[in-house]
Design a binder for these strands. Structure first.
Lengths: 223, 223
DNA sequence: AAGTGGTCTAGACCACTTA
DNA sequence: AAGTGGTCTAGACCACTTC
C-alpha cells in the first residue's frame, strides 16, 4: 500500500507536485480501509515524500537536495580525483544468515540470507578505508558474483538500484584488533566510523560500516 | 497522550530501559482507544524515544545524541530539542595577538588582534562539546562583552553576521591532556573534531574547533 | 494460556478548502 | 455543499514471547 504509492513516485509515474488520490479514492481503488490509507499517507508526509494540505489534497513533494561533500561518494572516484592509484583487497565475500541485529538493519527476517563483503581500499598502496558491507539479496541477487577487483560494491549497487534514501551516522571510535591488522594501524589510532544504510523503493539495499584511520582521512564539506 | 508519555520519560519518571505500560493498559488508564495508544507508541518508537519488542513490551530507549552533519547547528538548540538541559562553562575569553597560523585562518595580518573563547557545553551536566573559537574583531567588536552563560557564541555571531559560506573538516583524533580534563574523558578516548570556518560578506567571521567525545556524540545525516 | 505488539476494518466527528 | 485531511473509537485477527 504505502510501498505502491512510493513506487509510483520514484518511478516518475507521479511527478513532482502531482496530485495523489485522496484517502477515500484509495479506499475504493486499493480496497483498504480509510485508517490504513490515512496512515500510509501520513507516514509518507513525515518522510517528506509528499506534502498534505487539509481541504486540498496530497501532493508529491520536490526531491530533497542531497549529497554535499558528505554524501554518498564512491571512494574509488575520490582517490582517482586526487590523482592517486586505487586498489581493492577483497578480504571476504560470502552469504550469511541474518541474526537479530543484522535482520533489523536490513529489514529482513531473522534467519534470512544476506550477502557479506569485506574490502580494504588502498590509496597508493596505503590502506585508507575498511568497507564492511551487508547486502539485501532480494535487491542484488548477483552481488557475490561481481569482480571486486574491478567494480566497487558502491558502483555496482547504485547501478542496479537507484538510491532513494540514506541514513548515515558518523562517529569516532577505536578500531578492533582485526581492523587494525587490515588497515595497518596501531590499536590506539582513532578512526572515523561511518555507518550508512541506503534504501531503494522502500527496501534496504545495503548496510555498511566504513572505517577510516583518523591520521589518513578526513571528511570535508563546504557550503 | 503521546506528549504525556514523552513527558514522563523526559522528567526521568520513567528511566532508561523502564517498561512502559502496554497498549491495553494505556487504554484503561488514559481512556483512549487502542488505535490511539498504538499510534502514539509507534510514533515514539520511530523517533527513537522508545523501543518495542513484540510479545515483550515497550521500553524507554537510551538517549540518542546525534546531529545533522550537514549545516551549522547551534549545540544549545540540539540539546534542548532532545529535552535535556544545556549549560555552558566559560573557560576562557580574551583578546590575543594573531600568530602565523591563526592569521592565515582568519585571513588577518600577523600581529593583528583576535578574540579567543573556550567553552564547555554540557548536556544534563555531562560535557559533550569543547568549543575553542577565534573570532574576527572587525566583524564582532563586542564579542567579548557577551554573557556566555546565556547566549552561545554561535547564536550571537549568526545574529550579527549572516553566514555566507562554510568550510568544514571532520576528523577523528585523540584528545590533548587539557582537553581530557575539560571533557572529563580518558586520554585514549577517540573524539570527533570538527574544524569550521564561516564567512560573511567575504570576511572570515570565526574559526572554531569543536571536540566531541566519541562515546557521547555522533553526527547524523539523513537524505 | 495469557499478554504483548502489528495490523487492519468500519464508522464517526471535526476543521479546512474550494466552488 | 462537497470534498479534503486530522483525529478518534470499537472491535478484530495474527505472530510473537513468556509462563
Amino acid at each position: 500500500m504505502k510501498t505502491e504509492i512510493r513506487a509510483r513516485i520514484e518511478t516518475g509515474e507521479w511527478p513532482v507536485n502531482h496530485r495523489i488520490p485522496s484517502e477515500n479514492e484509495l479506499v475504493d481503488t486499493l480496497g483498504v480501509s480509510r485508517m490504513t490509507a490515512n496512515r500510509a499517507l501520513r507516514e509518507l508526509a513525515n518522510e517528506g515524500v509528499i506534502t498534505r494540505v487539509q481541504g486540498k489534497g496530497s501532493f508529491v513533494a520536490p526531491k530533497k537536495r542531497s549529497a554535499l561533500a558528505l554524501g554518498v561518494r564512491n571512494i574509488a572516484d575520490e582517490i582517482l580525483e586526487r590523482g592517486a592509484v586505487h586498489r581493492m583487497d577483497l578480504i571476504l565475500a560470502q552469504a550469511e544468515t541474518c541474526g537479530h541485529e543484522l535482520a533489523a538493519a536490513l529489514e529482513l527476517d531473522i534467519g534470512a540470507q544476506s550477502f557479506h563483503s569485506v574490502i580494504v581500499h588502498n590509496e597508493d598502496d596505503v590502506p585508507i578505508q575498511l568497507e564492511d558491507r551487508f547486502v539485501n539479496p532480494a535487491v542484488a541477487p548477483d552481488y557475490l558474483k561481481q569482480d571486486f577487483s574491478r567494480t566497487t560494491p558502491n558502483a555496482f549497487l547504485t547501478s542496479i538500484a537507484p538510491i532513494a534514501k540514506t541514513e548515515q551516522f558518523i562517529e569516532a571510535v577505536l578500531p578492533q584488533p582485526w581492523e587494525c591488522k587490515l588497515l595497518a594501524i596501531a590499536r590506539s589510532e582513532p578512526c572515523i566510523l561511518i555507518r550508512r544504510r541506503t534504501w531503494s523503493q522502500d527496501r534496504v539495499v545495503t548496510a555498511v560500516r566504513l572505517l577510516y584511520p583518523g591520521s589518513r582521512y578526513r571528511l570535508q564539506s563546504n557550503f
